[in-house]
Design a protein around this nucleic acid. Structure first.
Lengths: 140, 140
DNA sequence: TATTATTCCTACTTGTATAGTAGGAATGGT
DNA sequence: ACCATTCCTACTATACAAGTAGGAATAATA
């Protein structure tokens, strides 16, 4: 599970927006999430272009989620910042079975990250014993 | 699941040794596994230093597994080539719950790769419907 | 003992990705 | 008009990955 600083920051920023109930300045996000100021701009721009957040300029401006926090999965955010993964070089025939293993791993990872939403994370403040799936059950 | 070319090659090389019943030349491994010749040397050296394989020099030399293929997990190989993962920068308090998610993912990944051995892969020639755990059960 | 095939070792090169930074244009409220 | 903010392109600096180079050490064989 490779996780770049950019992606970590993006997730932090999205959570900050998920917690707020009105537009938030990049400045504030940068401070609370400990993201370098200019880099924060940079990332927010990318998230907006991807359609995950919306923005308004000028004083009274800021950023907010484009959809309810319960409809944005962690995977949605990660896909944006990590971009499409390069098509992993194939194993030679001799080691072909390994391809199946990787596929299984990626699949599981993707399933989990697609189930968990920003709302789930926000809801789990302090008590991280469980992560809700939104239907009351627990994520494996 | 980040997987470097080096690690892919290392796994291929180990599988080549697992299939053989006598010492194998680096040259042969390089060809069958499609590994650049010199790079192959390089990797085999690393695997030997890690104690996963043994070697003999000179004509009639070559490489072989240090332990039975059934006692070498994929994770053992990966740990060698990927090295100890750098201690992932911590999330700020606001995004702390994410730490738990990553831990869970890494844990699952590690569990799976620790269960599957080189012998399992070799045994699954052609029929990759299932991967044996060695006890007859199927890996999830 | 000379030859030859192999492993062994350090260091180097080169390409690509990551993590940011710089400078300013566009916009919107007051 | 002013000012705070978002917006945009492009640049730099560092680290890591992938692979290469040159040769020393070792062991079988003749």
């Amino acid at each position: 599970m490779r996780i770049s600083a950019r992606t970590q920051y993006a997730l932090g920023a999205m959570l900050a927006l998920a917690e707020a109930d009105s537009p938030v300045h990049a400045e504030r996000i940068a401070v609370t999430q400990e993201i370098p100021r200019r880099f924060c701009d940079n990332i927010l721009l990318q998230l907006r272009r991807a359609g995950l957040i919306q923005s308004q300029r000028g004083p009274e401006g800021g950023y907010w989620l484009a959809r309810p926090a319960g409809e944005i999965a962690l995977a949605d955010v990660i896909r944006v910042t990590e971009g499409a993964e390069p098509p992993a070089r194939p194993f030679p025939r001799a080691a072909a079975p390994l391809t199946e293993i990787w596929a299984r791993l990626r699949s599981h990872e993707n399933a989990l990250l697609s189930e968990i939403t920003l709302a789930d994370i926000v809801a789990s403040n302090g008590t991280m014993d469980a992560v809700s799936n939104g239907d009351g059950t627990l994520a494996s």
